[in-house]
């Protein structure tokens, strides 16, 4: 319990130390673009593939329930709302944390072991400014963009399944998705994704920088980073649901 609290405190502290560089903006643009290219593009194929599967699953399950309640005409609407608002961002976030968050924790852990982080401090550069802040911004941006792409691919997967399983014409499916103001749902999902990206980046940077000397600690750091970001993801999602019910 004590360990958990100290980690939560450390993560929060790291967030504030990094957020200091947001106003006025002091961004290491080369590191920022390197991370966007290196982490974001690399994670694209697997995220999109899982998004297709997610959309297919959503239509299979929610579609069946909606059909049971006697409203086949709402299959597209129900799965559209579910994918855009809830399942898309969460599952893409989980995959992103497994792929990019854990890779980031391992990379920072290795930099810590090879004393590159200390070298930065020795040069008078704050490692939080040079390493953490660009990652934070990059992952927030990346996850928002990935969520838009992922939603699109999930709905494509959904339209294929609703065509094959419920004999629903893809054209009708897309009409059902697009006609009732999906922009609000999409924007809510993207806003969530920005917070998920913040959570994943700060958590993975924190556990990566926790590594001291021993290379074996890198494996532990990856494990803790994935577990903690998944927990944080659900807490954020819960807060969003609360805010929605209150509004």
């Amino acid at each position: 319990m004590r360990g958990l609290l100290s980690h939560v405190g450390g993560i929060t502290w790291l967030f504030f130390r990094a957020a200091r560089y947001a106003v006025p903006l002091r961004l290491e643009s080369r590191e920022f673009s390197r991370i966007l290219l290196h982490f974001g593009v690399k994670s694209l194929p697997l995220v999109l593939l899982t998004a297709v599967i997610t959309g297919a699953l959503m239509v299979l399950q929610t579609g069946a329930v909606v059909e049971l309640m006697g409203a086949t005409s709402m299959v597209g609407w129900a799965s559209g709302v579910a994918v855009l608002r809830e399942v898309g961002p969460v599952l893409i976030g989980v995959m992103f944390s497994g792929q990019v968050g854990s890779f980031n924790a391992a990379e920072l852990g290795l930099m810590k072991i090879t004393e590159q982080v200390e070298a930065l401090s020795g040069l008078g550069v704050d490692p939080v400014r040079f390493l953490v802040f660009p990652r934070m911004l990059a992952m927030m941006l990346m996850l928002a963009v990935l969520t838009v792409y992922g939603d699109l691919f999930a709905l494509i997967g959904g339209s294929i399944v609703s065509w094959g399983m419920f004999d629903l014409d893809p054209w009708v499916f897309w009409q059902q998705v697009l006609l009732p103001h999906p922009v609000d749902d999409l924007l809510e999902g993207v806003l969530k994704a920005v917070f998920f990206g913040l959570n994943i980046s700060v958590v993975s940077c924190y556990f990566g920088l926790q590594v001291e000397r021993d290379p074996w600690e890198v494996g532990v750091a990856v494990n803790r980073s994935v577990v903690t970001s998944a927990m944080g993801l659900f807490v954020i999602d819960y807060l969003f649901a609360l805010a929605r019910a209150g509004a």
Partner: peptide
């Protein structure tokens, strides 16, 4: 020793992919 972290990363990705 440095490949241990990469192995951990691949372990998460591949097992969650096969779960899907």
């Amino acid at each position: 020793a440095f490949s241990v972290g990469q192995a951990a990363t691949r372990g998460v990705i591949m097992s969650s992919f096969f779960v899907f």
